[in-house]
Simulated assay, not measured.
Amino acid sequence: MKRIKLERVIIITIAMTIIGGLQSWYDHVTIGSMFSLGESEIYKFQTALLFNLISGASGGLVASITLNFIDDKYRTKPYYQGLIIIVSMFMLVWAIRNTIEAFILMETEPAKGFVFAFDAIDMRNIIFWMTIVLLSYFFLQMENKFGPGKLTQIFFGKYNIPREEERVFMFLDLKSSTTIAENLGGIKYHLFLKELFSDITTPILETGGEIYQYVGDEVVLSWPTEGSGNLNYIRCFFAIQQLLKSEENKYLQRFGVKPYFKAGAHHGTVIAGEIGVVKRDITYSGDVLNTTARIQSMCNELHSSFLISNDLLDLHPIPYSDWIIERKGEIQLKGKSETIELMSIYKY
């Protein structure tokens, strides 16, 4: 999550700095056009360029930090609340910028004194930069909606033509979900899941996981096989369990329960492709999904919180110094003609 936030700060700051420079260049070209009265005595392109670059960089830094704050604290809140914060911060930055500009002009023309400008140029700048900031906020929400990197993939049509991919899948299922739902009731149970899924998002993103689907009280996660050599799917599961352990008191106070997950993991070939017109998305299809779901369904029967296939263990051997590996033997999964060897993973 920290890496994602840092990348967001860097990208937005650089982008707004470049936009600030382009705006200075556009103004300079416009001033020299046949429709302009020409440059004023106090105008210098180098000064305007430097000022706009600094303004763009500082504005981008403030905007990206604000977006990270909104993403942290207002992730489950209505969008308009985040919108109010980002607009308020923009107006504050604009006021500070124009105050600094007024002091610079006062040094240039002392006779005029301090003049806080608000004219047609300011209106243009407000509309222009407000549009940039709101677009940044919009893309942040779309990125959250589709998942990190998905919006870019859809934009460039990466999956317009279906393609084969090797991926690791993990099915996370809430323990005792039926009992919890009966005790909490429909609305409170939904609020409980909303809080729970929001909390586990951070360890998922920090371990490079992709949230593929929410299915009731179940979450389907995925990682590229070639990027799973660091065993991120295992780190993800135990990071989630550790997080929920640390948040036990919060859940007990609000909902009267202590949530924990059981999980199953497997790897294989899937067909990845874009589907839909009105509600477009990237979907995966393949037997690996069915197999992973059935592995997860064996957790209660085999008295394990985390089961993986031996095929996945062979793909990326797990260091025994970090985790305990218990062989559960050859298991006949429901709906499968062949047996599969399952392993149970525990943390020391």
Rank of each mutant, 00 (worst) to 15 (best):
E326D: 00
I14L: 15
A293L: 07
G227M: 10
H303A: 07
L342R: 02
R280D: 10
T283W: 03
S176A: 14
I180C: 01
K279M: 15
Y346N: 11
I19Y: 10
G32Q: 01
M106A: 05
V87N: 01
I70E: 04
E195I: 07
I234K: 06
F261D: 01
D217P: 01
M106Q: 03
G147V: 03
L221S: 02
S33R: 09
I104R: 08
G38D: 04
E330V: 10
G20H: 04
Y320H: 15
G38I: 02
L83H: 03
H266E: 11
H28L: 05
F138K: 09
G56C: 12
Q46S: 12
K250W: 13
V87H: 00
T99R: 09
K158I: 11
I65M: 11
F103G: 00
T13A: 08
V93N: 05
S64C: 07
V133Q: 07
Q242R: 15
V133C: 09
K158A: 12
I275F: 11
D322F: 13
F146A: 13
T225L: 13
L333D: 00
K44A: 10
F306V: 03
G216R: 04
C299D: 08
L289A: 14
E7A: 09
L313M: 09
V220I: 13
K194W: 04
I127G: 14
T99I: 08
Q213P: 02
I340L: 15
L315Y: 05
A120C: 05
R97P: 02
S305D: 14
A272G: 08
K347C: 14
I295W: 00
G157V: 06
S198V: 09
F116A: 11
E164D: 14
T47V: 11
F155L: 15
T152V: 14
L22E: 04
I4C: 12
S344I: 08
V270I: 13
V115R: 12
S321M: 07
L307D: 01
T207R: 10
I11V: 15
I100W: 05
Q332A: 11
T152W: 14
I318G: 03
L174M: 12
S344Y: 12
T47W: 11
K334N: 10
T178C: 08
I96D: 01
Q296F: 07
P319A: 06
F90D: 00
G82A: 10
I86D: 03
R235K: 14
P319I: 00
K328V: 12
L302V: 02
T30Y: 12
F155C: 08
Y284R: 14
R327K: 14
Y74P: 12
L140Y: 15
L22F: 02
H303D: 04
T152C: 12
G268T: 00
A48N: 12
R235T: 03
E195G: 06
F114M: 06
E101R: 00
D71W: 05
K194C: 05
Q23P: 03
